[in-house]
Write a protein that binds this DNA or RNA. Structure first.
Lengths: 347, 347
DNA sequence: ATGGAGTGCTTTATCGATTCAGCAACCGTC
DNA sequence: GACGGTTGCTGAATCGATAAAGCACTCCAT
């Protein structure tokens, strides 16, 4: 690559003002050891030349990059192409802006050389800390990263990593809540659950919430759970298999909205009406659930807020203000729409 | 902030092997001036210590950051929360990964001090080049950035910036294509167009395409165009106003899918059936159009590919392989669904 | 045996910003 | 008028990696 077009350095300013780099630096930093007259002169010249401190030189000297990384494991590829990620990015970006830091978005694409992207980005000094989202349970990299003592905050729940910092949502309670809704408000009794992948805590917790609700109603005996992968296709496939099995059901609790949408399409194709023949509920409310017909009753996951608070926490760690491990779970909200029978859409 | 936990440096390796930093550096670089034996020793120690080159030191010395920035103007705030951005990020990220570069995502949030975020990020050496997306026509920062000679590639069409590099889609032809579809295939004659904001080239071009199609059919005289802002709400508002005006129409060409969705909801609320009473077409196909009922006939904009090619071009510029200005327009594709009358959805 | 070409490293300088120890000049004070 | 204290800067070192020049030493050809 060709070298970057040369910028204005402190040296340029110093020469113009007739002082040294060091003095110019102190002047711009507002040191009390520099005369007001010189400070003003330096500021004037800096403005005139359009001086912007070279962040690389500064980072080297200060031993911190002024940037944080947002890492998305490639294992959960569907996540990167998902609306969820936008919310996360917005939250991370908002917090980072408030802390004058850059955001580096990184996928865990290259695994060569035994050093994971997680480690590489931190050890290389490119970023001062990391936000990790949608990590699988068996992702050894996350464990390694947390164990290494580098500043990391995870988005999600990681009960098997007690020393990690994380901000999640109360998936279990939320899933119980939405299942209860079908049981209590709509009197459904034969529910199926299409779970997320069970190597993600989200998949486990949402299934757990479903099972807990059934148990509360004495329906725990023969709970019906099918594992999906959060994709629209897997939701559709689960419903196809359920219909073909002949086992009756009057409601389906999907672990996310994408699968719920896929399932609803199959139901419609088979001539079944949602919610009359089968009520449907989803999870996430990242956008899709609002736009389908009928709208999908779901749990609103505050992804942006989770990301923002995770990032705020990361900056607190970087500032030395956050000591021990910390896990927060943000409250979620039930959003009722047409798919459960609550609101009848327009004719 | 507390200093970053100290990493392994070349000095550590050099000491262990019994050579100097410089030799260690050359060894890892594979220089022919270092004996095979020493090279192997250095590689072994580097692996053992988990050495990762400090990207800041390297960037300072090499005078390039090894990172590019993706800038989204805050003026078009709705864009950041839009699915479009995901596609762009995916494309940029893919190309950057292939070039071993980091991606810095930046909003143009802070405008303080007269130096725009655009300039700051480049002048500070944080990024070697910039991808700018969704810039408004009157965004002086983009002009300044392009004029400064810094490596920039724009996503979109910027006919008023002839010296800029850009990759866009042929919005005019595409809009003509989808309008033609309503005119020719579905025999509609009274079309309304809800445009995007006319301070974006996209808004102008899509309107232009609509008008051209009407003119081709001798309907150019009293073309009906309303300006929206690409939001669902503005699409809804445009349809409300149209219905209330009493002026009859049998089809609406929206400049994007969000507005089409908003419009369709209003039509349904007013008891009108899409496409029977009014055909609807959108633009973008970033996800929404596929999930509504009926599905929205639209133009598929290859956002990810645009972003990928824009980023590839940026790297070509950085490598000095791309000289003159360049503007490419990628082909778009008509995707027919239920909202125009082409496919009847399931009962 | 002597100059030229390798070979394999070391030394030194550099990138830009920042920090810390100095060091003049000047001030007031007893 | 010598002395402590301030004011306002300079000089040098540092962060980590790397490029270029330099310097021993070996080897081969003439």
């Amino acid at each position: 690559m060709a070298p970057r077009s040369h910028g204005v350095t402190l040296e340029d300013i110093a020469q113009r003002v007739g002082i040294t780099r060091a003095a110019a630096s102190m002047a711009l930093a507002g040191s009390s050891r520099i005369s007001e007259k010189t400070k003003q002169a330096v500021r004037d010249v800096a403005a005139e030349l359009g001086y912007v401190p070279n962040s690389v030189g500064r980072a080297l000297r200060r031993q911190r990059a002024g940037a944080i990384a947002l890492i998305v494991p490639n294992t959960s590829h569907h996540v990167f192409g998902h609306t969820y990620f936008m919310h996360v990015l917005t939250g991370v970006s908002t917090s980072a802006n408030a802390h004058d830091a850059q955001v580096i978005v990184s996928t865990n694409a290259d695994e060569a050389g035994g050093v994971s992207a997680y480690e590489r980005i931190i050890r290389s000094g490119t970023a001062d800390g990391v936000i990790v989202t949608s990590a699988a349970i068996d992702d050894a990299n996350v464990e390694m990263l947390v164990a290494s003592g580098l500043p990391v905050v995870l988005i999600g729940s990681f009960p098997y990593l007690p020393s990690a910092m994380s901000i999640g949502a109360d998936d279990v309670a939320a899933s119980t809540l939405v299942t209860e809704h079908l049981l209590t408000v709509h009197g459904r009794r034969r529910l199926m659950h299409v779970s997320g992948p069970l190597d993600h805590q989200t998949g486990i917790d949402r299934r757990q919430g479903f099972l807990a609700a059934l148990a509360d109603h004495g329906l725990g005996e023969d709970a019906w759970v099918v594992e999906g992968d959060m994709s629209e296709e897997s939701g559709a496939a689960a419903v196809v298999a359920a219909l073909d099995s002949g086992r009756p059901f009057d409601g389906v609790v999907f672990a996310n909205d994408d699968m719920a949408f896929g399932g609803m399409q199959v139901l419609r194709t088979r001539g079944l009406v949602v919610p009359t023949d089968a009520a449907v509920v989803g999870f996430d409310d990242f956008g899709l659930a609002r736009t389908t017909t009928p709208g999908i009753t779901t749990i609103r996951v505050p992804a942006e807020r989770m990301a923002r608070e995770a990032t705020d926490t990361l900056f607190a760690v970087l500032a030395g203000q956050q000591a021990g491990p910390l896990h927060r779970e943000l409250p979620v909200e039930l959003v009722t729409r047409g798919s459960c029978g609550c609101h009848v859409d327009m004719p």
